[in-house]
Simulated scan of single mutants.
Amino acid sequence: MSPDKNSQTMKPLTAAAKLGIYLPATPEDFRSSPVTRAQLEELRTNPPQWLQDLRRTGPFPRDVTAHKLGVTNSALSRNGIPDALTTEQIDAYLADPPEWLVKERENLVEVRKEAERVKTKEAERRAATNRPRKNY
C-alpha cells in the first residue's frame, strides 16, 4: 500500500514557487521548515494574513514581476532589475516606462509573432506532407 501523498514534504523554496511568492519575504517559520502537501493546500485555500499581504503588495519573485511588466525574466536580468519588486515599484515602471521596458515589450511582441508564424508554417508543412498522393 502506498503512503498518504499528503505526508510528502517539499522545501520551502518549492512551496513558495508553487504559491507564486518571494521566499525571502516570507515569515521565518515558513522558510525554516519543510511544507507538506496538506499544508500547501491549506495555504492555498485559507491563506494567512502574511500570504494575502505578499500576494497583494509583494515583493514578487522574478517570474511574477516579469509577467506583471509584460517582459521576460531575461529582460529583467539584462536591464539590472532586482530579483523582486513590490507592487509600488511595478506600478511606477508601468506609469512611466523607461526606454528599456518599452523596447523589451516590443521585442517580446515580435518574438511571439515570429514564433506563431513559424508554428503556422510548420503545421502547413506537416499537413502538406500528410496529404494522400494521387496515382496517375
Rank of each mutant, 00 (worst) to 15 (best):
R112Q: 07
E42V: 03
D53M: 09
Q49P: 03
P27C: 07
V111N: 01
N79L: 04
P47F: 13
S7N: 11
E110Q: 05
P61I: 11
R37N: 09
K119I: 01
K119D: 03
R78G: 02
F60L: 09
N130Y: 11
V109Q: 15
A128V: 13
R37A: 01
L76P: 03
Q39W: 04
K18Q: 12
S2K: 10
T57M: 14
L13K: 15
R126D: 00
G58K: 00
A25N: 03
R133G: 05
L76R: 00
Q8R: 12
A15P: 04
T45Q: 15
L54E: 06
G70E: 06
V64S: 06
R37C: 00
I90W: 01
A25F: 11
P48A: 01
R126Q: 11
P61H: 13
F60A: 03
E110S: 08
L76S: 00
A127F: 13
P97Q: 05
R31G: 01
R131G: 02
V71D: 00
E41H: 14
E122P: 02
Q49S: 14
R112K: 13
S2D: 13
K134Y: 15
P12H: 12
L101Y: 10
K121Y: 11
E114R: 06
T120A: 06
S2N: 15
R117G: 06
A16H: 04
R56Y: 13
P24Y: 07
K103H: 09
L108C: 09
Q52M: 12
A75E: 01
A15M: 05
L19F: 00
S74R: 08
L13V: 13
P3M: 10
D83P: 01
T65I: 06
R126V: 08
V64N: 00
L85H: 03
S77C: 04
K11W: 05
E110L: 09
H67Y: 06
S2W: 14
Y93N: 00
R56N: 12
Y22E: 03
P47E: 13
K68Q: 15
K121V: 10
W50M: 04
E110F: 05
P82S: 08
K68A: 13
R56D: 10
P12Q: 14
D63R: 11
S74K: 03
A127L: 14
A25V: 06
L108D: 02
K113W: 14
A38K: 15
T120M: 02
L13M: 15
T87W: 09
V111S: 03
D4N: 13
N107D: 15
E114P: 00
T129Y: 10
R117K: 15
D96M: 10
T36W: 05
S33E: 04
T9N: 05
G70N: 07
Y22T: 04
R62P: 00
E28Q: 14
S77Y: 05
A15C: 11
N135H: 06
